[in-house]
Design a protein around this nucleic acid. Sequence first.
DNA 1: GACCTGCTGCGGCTTG
Length: 718
Amino acid sequence: MQAFDRLARPIQKWIRSKGWRELRDIQARATHHILTTNEHLIVAASTAGGKTEAAFLPLLSDVLDREGLAGSGFDLVYIGPLKALINDQCKRLQDICTETELKVTPWHGDVSASIKSKAEKQPSGILLITPESLEALFIRKGNSIPHLFGRTRAFIIDELHTFLDAERGVHLRSLMARLELSIGRGVRKVGLSATLGDISLAKAYLDPDRPEQVADIVAQGGDSELQMQLRAYINGGEEDNAALRAVSDHLFDRLRGSNNLIFAGSRGRVEEVADRLRTKSEEERLPNEFYPHHASLSKEHREFVEERLKSESLPTTAVCTSTLELGIDIGDVTCVAQIGAPFTVAGLRQRLGRSGRRAGQPAILRQYAIESRIDQNSHFADRLRLDLIRSVAMINLLLIGWCEAPNRRALHLSTFVHQILSVIAERGGASAKRIFATLCEKGPFRSIEPPLFVSVLRHLGSPGVDLVEQSEDGMLLLGKRGEKIAEHYSFYAVFKTPEEYRIVHDGKTLGTLPIVQVLAPKMALIFSGRRWEVLSVEEADNTILVKPAPAGRPPKFGGEPGLIDDRVIQEMKRVYLDDAIPEYLDETAAGLLCEARRNFKMLGLETQRIIAIGETKALLAIWQGSVKSNTLALALSAKGFTVAAYDGLLDVEGKNADCSLETALSKIQAAETPRIFSSNTNLMFDKFHPYLSTELLQQDAMSGKLDINALPALADLI
DNA sequence: GACCTGCTGCGGCTTG
């Protein structure tokens, strides 16, 4: 039987109206699978690969043709990570459903209360919702969950890779498990994704008990030809920004006249590059077509840039951060430029997926490395050209199809605290036994054993914390502070957001700035692609008033460094030891690669792993990623050393150390439980960390951000 | 030496 014939009549009619001659391969396979089995499924294909239709054409047919489950509720529940994505998908699904009676309901913070209350009274059809809005339903309408989802046949999880074992993914997994408990049965799950490094981890996300039972449909071939070039630029003096200007000028020449994305690495650099490109357009008396796009810019400005990209009426290049990495529809772009090495190969792959989506068009990557001028006294990180080498390593890994896997060891105690409060709020009270069964036995917190559960719960109820309290019959209730926290709408998200200033010109908000730097009147600012002078700082309502100005500097946005995978650093070492010059390097980059390899040998890194630099300094080459580097760095700083980590290389200074470096390393190697924390180690990273004890915070850090078991091997460097 | 994501109920107002 042909896949098309399995689909419901109205769906077939819609396909004909589109003029499609046949279903795509993944759509046909998904149709057979969904309509002949009850298994969970992962559909993996590139951004424009027709994943949404692959899942929904058969799922909608199932709803239309087959008798439904008893009870009330939405038939299909789509979960998306972005409001904009939900809006996009909502339009597409409404179009597919035109010939049916099925309702399509978007549900997120921007959707009006009237639409929500209407859907709540008579839930049916397709619901498109964010994890946070689903959380809000548990908190506010805990008793209505069976009414809303009693006959739900499937969860469709879009951009599955953004969830997995990140804190927001653990949150969503917990919500799905709780929903299933609440309606008394399991629900089929269909995950959609473009970038899955290890598909078995995605399967374990959908069904941790029986991952091998989860089917997958991966688009065959489909990847278009990849063209790429890595160009390197060298800065002059210390403060000189000549290289970034040269990169901008090169981009100006190559990208004008078409639609492109420039990933600049940080919001500050986005503003800097966008400013340079705009002023160059002015200098050459050409209309500007380069616009900044990042999360701190106003929604209006961002939508303007997105619309310009989508409409394809005027050539447009967005200089952006990872805001434009995810799947909102901005059409096809000619080329993707990346300034500086990215932190993950997965992100690089996702970005590249934005280009070359039309048949016959190649995907084009323009990678730029910015290096400094060096001499014999330069720091080893500069002499080794770490940024350039990491770019090469990441492109190599991209080419062999590797990308990072999520971390499955992490306890996620912050999200755990959140879910404990949520389970209690859902029913107005819950026994400890029930919470444990819900979250740790059925839910995603399976590595939390009863003793750890008890110590978390004890701490939440301890004096001064007051999140939870126990009634006389043993039920756990929200304490005074717990009630206040769970009542406020800021509770629904599990991730933390910093306090911000609003930047205002002429009554209009240009965007926001995290409060990490002191801004004062008369300071010059580059923001939203233009130049400003600060008029006043209103501390009362965190507002900064600005007026246009002829000069400016990009502001500091703050942020923490990202985690780099072990495999990336190991590939960097391989690149140093290799002789080959990749074809995609320009002349400068090839020269710098040879120079970096010479310096690698000159420093002695070919044969040694500890290199003394002067009397008290040393370079430790551990060739592992951020988690392991940070662990050894912490263990050494607990012994009085000052340590900085550079891509698998530790810069160690021992002036105030308790002992020699060799002694410290052998002690770390021999110790059963090496001391790595001191009183000033910062362990508060996540939203609910302030409600955990130091001991619990240490356990949380050791489960995700540190790898204490690796210490003996890491310290074995002699 | 980084980036991103999300959010309810209700009081008070105007308007038909």
